[in-house]
Design a protein around this nucleic acid. Structure first.
Lengths: 137, 137
DNA sequence: GTAAACCTTCTTCTACAGGAGAAGGTCAAG
DNA sequence: CTTGACCTTCTCCTGTAGAAGAAGGTTTAC
């Protein structure tokens, strides 16, 4: 199997396969006499693994570390487990941040609806962002 | 006011002030005889505006566009409004994606708990990511 | 025998918001 | 008069996952 066929089998560009190779996610492949990369099904499986792990939010560096553990002859399960735990915590935190941002945006939009552009001054740049003044007694 | 004092007033590095200047977010400042940048309070206000807009998730390029409209003599309110609408839509979509990712991660972690690392084979790299086979009849 | 469709390596670019270092000028205090 | 704290410009680096182009060799099909 040549690189184009491998790439087509997964619907990814050939560039990406070479990129993964340089990142250490794929082993240096066999070469035909003309220098072309030659692959077998194990590479296909490895690429599928990479894509699945990516779908779980792992970065290529993290996936490379998992592959590294496996290549050391160790089952990377516990490593994967901790990566997933960390990722889950990250995702939850990010979700919280985005929830706050969504609330902030809604508030700004609501304010926008109640403001008249004619009242917007150059000094403020745009009064939608001007903090609502809590009028003191 | 020199750049260090301006930066300290907002708790940002002086580098950042120069960076904003080069990005067109701040006007070219006055210079003292020795070449030092000299600022007044309008720059302080502009920096506060930038920080507020950033907190709302706008990119520096978007903020620059808002400032550009204002510098054209137009109230940028409607422009800001559409930016905020777009940002809100983005945030909502991203939240949905993250919710799906969180579910996926939870599922993988649950699977991890039920699998024995001793069953993990080299071909799979890690069986936590191996799609659960729906056994056909 | 040539054109299309492959393949090779190399380097540079993208978005994003700065961070970091080099190499040097200026100013106030001791 | 020197030390330390400022200030200046310049250029490159960070992480992420590729995309893009240059410039060339190879193979297949007609």
């Amino acid at each position: 199997m040549l690189i184009g066929q491998l790439a087509d089998a997964l619907g990814i560009p050939t560039r990406t396969v070479r990129f993964y190779e340089r990142k250490g996610l794929l082993p240096d492949p066999e070469r035909a006499e003309n220098g072309y990369r030659v692959y077998d099904d194990t590479t296909l499986a490895r690429l599928r693994f990479i894509r699945t792990a990516q779908a779980a939010g792992l970065t290529l560096a993290e996936i490379a570390s998992v592959i590294g553990v496996r290549d050391d002859g160790t089952a990377p399960c516990s490593h994967v487990d901790s990566l997933l735990e960390a990722k889950l915590a990250e995702v939850r935190q990010r979700r919280r941040q985005l929830a706050a941002l969504e609330a902030e945006l809604s508030e700004l939009l609501e304010r926008s609806r109640q403001l008249d552009p004619a009242d917007c001054t150059a000094g403020e740049i745009c009064h939608i962002f001007t903090p609502t003044e809590t009028v003191p007694s």
